[in-house]
Simulated scan of single mutants.
Amino acid sequence: MKSNFLKTTVAGIILSASTLATQAYAGSIDLNSWSQQGHAANGNWTVAPDGSSVVQSINGNPTFFVSPESFINKEFTGSFGVETTDDNDFVGFVFGYNGLDDFYLFDWKQGTQTYNGQVGYEGFTLSKISAGADVTSLNSLWDHNGTGVTVLDTDYGNDRGWADNTVYEFTLGYTDTEINIGINGGDFVNEQIFSISGLDNQAGHFGFYNMSQATVRYSGFEEDTCTENCGTVPEPSTLAIFALSLIGIGARRFKK
């Protein structure tokens, strides 16, 4: 019983350390002040009365739901998930957004699929959208090709898609020089998806993105000021390492 008590206590210490590291300076985002971007018919974004979550319900062309403020040197955290077993298309986020011809796009597809001869691959894509890109139809963003679409990195594979009715925790670090994106949930355990440095980023809006996928919920988003290690999967804290060592000591001490 002493061993179980010690493990329970240490687990609490680890959880507390993690919470302090990730939530101490978080500021909640009120989605009531956000607005839909792109063609109005492409999306239907319904915000909860308290502003803590939003559901996009149309299976259509690209649609965006974007903050009124611009951000740089920030870390964003929150959760999202597809609340249906229908379809297998794109969910994601935009940031550094300064209009439909100037933003970063992170999108995630559940399954590989060909549309009009273009292949949309299962997994993650990080793109820079610039002048001339067609972001109002499926034509350019389905296969991340064409004028104004520059793919910065990909992570594709037959085990890289999102799962139905699964909540994922999302972390984005967006600074003057870096983009770091992490996912936690389902088969993805605190996984760093993208980490790119050496950029020349500008302040821009943050928002949510859907293409050809309905019934997607985004909730509990927060933003923190951050200039170092923003959006990176954290190393075990000193307190957590100490706690783990206690488990080992306690297990040996109370083995009998």
Score class of each variant (00 low, 15 high):
2 K>P: 05
8 T>V: 15
9 T>P: 00
11 A>T: 15
18 S>E: 13
19 T>W: 10
19 T>Q: 14
20 L>R: 14
23 Q>W: 06
29 I>T: 11
30 D>K: 09
31 L>K: 01
36 Q>W: 01
37 Q>L: 13
44 N>V: 14
52 S>K: 01
52 S>C: 03
56 Q>V: 00
58 I>A: 02
60 G>F: 05
63 T>E: 02
64 F>M: 06
71 F>E: 09
71 F>L: 03
75 E>C: 11
77 T>K: 03
79 S>Y: 05
91 V>W: 00
93 F>L: 05
98 N>H: 09
98 N>T: 11
99 G>K: 09
105 L>C: 12
118 Q>M: 06
119 V>E: 08
119 V>A: 10
123 G>T: 04
127 S>L: 10
128 K>N: 07
135 V>A: 09
140 S>P: 01
140 S>Y: 13
140 S>G: 08
143 D>R: 12
152 L>A: 09
158 N>P: 08
159 D>W: 06
163 A>P: 01
167 V>I: 13
167 V>L: 03
167 V>S: 03
168 Y>I: 11
168 Y>N: 00
170 F>T: 00
171 T>V: 13
174 Y>V: 13
183 I>F: 01
184 N>M: 04
188 F>V: 09
195 S>D: 09
197 S>V: 13
198 G>A: 09
202 Q>C: 10
206 F>M: 08
208 F>V: 00
213 Q>Y: 02
215 T>G: 00
223 E>S: 14
224 D>Y: 06
228 E>F: 15
228 E>N: 10
231 G>V: 08
232 T>I: 12
233 V>P: 02
235 E>W: 04
237 S>I: 13
242 F>N: 05
242 F>C: 14
247 I>Y: 06
249 I>M: 14
251 A>P: 02
254 F>S: 04
